[in-house]
């Protein structure tokens, strides 16, 4: 899984670099606009170790933000799952708030609480929370009548059992949504660092942008891609383990 994902990323990345160099040589652009392959390589060697640390710094914020988003989405999803007035209010609020681009809201957070760890974390959480919430609330508010009927008819249904049934029946969807949220958490953290931070790979990209150093940006993009691939693969692996454990049989039936 990891091997294939990284292979695909590296292929896309180098195709991108190739396209850039093609533009450079076709339009005869200077090294200042698009650096030469040699310059990209030299810059990469110079900043590689520092950027690896920055990417790790970004990744851990993204992971923490992602976990907070998952917990929050499940908490609000469970509370908002009944077809009640409160449930529909939560759904409407989530849809409306999601309509605002968080990137546009991010500067307000920066103005209010300044730059630093909390700002990065908050923006990362906000970017992946609402899509996660909408999916989780959609899944948890959809009855599984064929299973739930017995428990309702015999008055054994409670909220824990209901959530368990619905989550179990939609486990693949939930895992896909959570893995998708991982990408958004990484993007959110980088955006936050770009706007309001003094650390992380987003901050490094901002610095490189001010220096008009495309080589550094390309190196950062490469490392972000590798880091995100690693995180997504880890998420998918955990998801697969959970799925396998849930569906594995205890015994073989004698039919």
């Amino acid at each position: 899984m990891l091997h294939r994902r990284i292979q695909q990323f590296v292929l896309v990345y180098f195709l991108g670099i190739l396209a850039l160099l093609l533009v450079k040589y076709l339009l005869n652009l200077s090294d200042y606009v698009i650096p030469s392959p040699v310059e990209i390589w030299q810059t990469c060697r110079t900043v590689f170790a520092r950027y690896v640390i920055s990417v790790l710094d970004t990744l851990w914020i993204a992971i923490v933000g992602h976990m907070i988003s998952i917990a929050l989405a499940f908490l609000v999803g469970i509370v908002g799952r009944p077809n009640s007035w409160f449930g529909s209010l939560i759904k409407a609020a989530a849809y409306n708030i999601q309509a605002y681009p968080i990137v546009a809201v991010a500067p307000i957070i920066f103005i209010l609480i300044g730059d630093g760890l909390i700002t990065r974390l908050l923006i990362a959480v906000l970017i992946c929370y609402f899509p996660l919430l909408l999916s989780v609330i959609g899944i948890l508010s959809e009855p599984v009548d064929s299973i739930e009927h017995f428990y309702v008819a015999t008055k054994r249904m409670n909220w824990r059992l209901q959530v368990r049934i619905r989550a179990y029946e939609n486990i693949s969807k939930l895992i896909t949504v959570i893995a998708g949220g991982g990408t958004m958490a990484v993007v959110g953290t980088i955006v936050a660092e770009f706007i309001a931070a003094d650390a992380g790979i987003g901050y490094s990209i901002r610095t490189a942008l001010y220096q008009s150093d495309l080589s550094k940006i390309l190196t950062a993009l490469f490392l972000i891609g590798i880091g995100t691939s690693l995180y997504l693969t880890a998420l998918e692996w955990v998801g697969n383990v959970i799925q396998k454990r849930l569906v594995s049989s205890k015994a073989t039936p004698d039919k």
């Binding site: 009927h149 368990r164 049934i165 569906v247």
Partner: peptide, 9 residues
């Protein structure tokens, strides 16, 4: 058409 939950025997 009723089913049992799938998490146990």
């Amino acid at each position: 058409m009723e089913r049992f939950p799938g998490w146990a025997g």
